[in-house]
């Protein structure tokens, strides 16, 4: 009885929290004066920011939950398969060669393309005779990430006056001004969420191990490939939208597994909503705590999320993922 109640509370409180974040400004709660153009702009800015925060938080949390189940590794996060390294290199290349000056979408497109190419490479390296091993995926992901990191450092060395945009991009920023970018990345996250939610039962079986899932009638290769692609689509969309934001994809799935259980039919929507709300709340803190100065949102996610996660760990019961 407790778990459905907590779940219900989560879904009821989420819209309230999001609305509060839209209304919260440096001078407290206030509806911007929408009769003036500046007031309208203020409202649009906050709506864009809250929407971007929700999309990114939901995408990262959902992607993290799926990867932790597929890789059967509690430390897995959306960036484990090299998505962050690929995305960062793609964005840095776009800045380095000046493509971002030609078109506003060149930078996110570059980040997204290299992130997806990285996944394909990692997947190819991890497959032996058509079978993809979990350890192979993690190891090739880590190795490719390191190599991409080195290439990024090489670009940084030669970046010269293009260094600031590369560094700022890597810090992550939720102030997305381009509505079309927000919609396209939001669609990517939405499609990815739909796919993994439809695979919830198969993911439940896969947390017991691939052999057990196979004996339960799951087409493991197909499900693993599809779920990995969807998780990477979600992560790459978030990277393209607002750069690299850590911690959300790691802690929110764990916290939600503790709150609503390990059944992915309940876990995935709860993680998506909680991840979205968590990131929006963190971002609101980041823009208000020393307003008008803005803090990098990653600092707040780590500061708030870390201790919260440790408290949950101290009070935890073994989950299906850990028992397996």
């Amino acid at each position: 009885m407790r778990k459905p109640l907590v779940q219900l509370l989560l879904y009821l409180l989420a819209p309230v929290a999001l609305a509060a974040c839209v209304l919260l400004g440096p001078h407290g709660f206030a509806w911007p004066d929408t009769t003036t153009p500046i007031g309208q702009a203020l409202l649009y800015l906050r709506l864009h920011r809250v929407a971007a925060g929700f999309v990114v938080g939901a995408g990262l949390a959902c992607s993290g939950a799926v990867l932790q189940a597929l890789l059967r590794n509690p430390l897995a996060d959306p960036y484990v398969l090299g998505v962050s390294g690929g995305g960062a290199l793609g964005a840095a290349l776009a800045i380095f060669f000046g493509w971002n000056m030609l078109h506003a979408l060149a930078l996110p497109a570059g980040a997204f393309a290299v992130a997806l190419a990285t996944l394909l490479l990692v997947y190819r390296l991890a497959s032996r005779g058509g079978v993809v091993s979990v350890y192979g995926l993690i190891l090739s992901g880590v190795v490719i990430s390191s190599m991409l990191g080195s290439l990024l450092m090489l670009l940084v060395v030669f970046a010269g006056d293009r260094l600031p945009p590369i560094v700022f991009w890597m810090l992550g920023n939720l102030q997305v001004s381009d509505t079309s970018l927000l919609l396209s990345c939001g669609s990517g996250v939405g499609v990815a969420f739909g796919i993994v939610w439809l695979l919830s039962r198969e993911l439940n079986a896969l947390t017991l191990g691939r052999d057990m899932a196979h004996h339960l009638g799951v087409r493991t290769e197909f499900v693993v490939g599809l779920a990995l692609t969807a998780a990477t689509l979600a992560a790459a969309s978030t990277v393209a939208l607002c750069g690299l934001i850590g911690f959300v994809g790691l802690i929110v799935p764990h916290a939600m597994r503790h709150v609503v259980g390990a059944d992915h039919r309940r876990l995935l929507p709860a993680a998506a909503v909680a991840g979205g709300v968590f990131l929006v709340l963190c971002d609101t803190c980041a823009r208000l705590v020393v307003a008008p100065v803005e803090l990098p949102v990653g600092v707040i996610t780590a500061l708030f999320g870390g201790p919260f996660f440790l408290v949950l760990l101290r009070r935890r019961k073994p989950t299906a993922l850990e028992a397996a």
Partner: peptide, 18 residues
Amino acid sequence: ELPGDFAIVSPEWVLQRN
């Protein structure tokens, strides 16, 4: 009104200060 040399600020603040 900001301490220090340089700071990342919110676009909201610029709009409000006009």
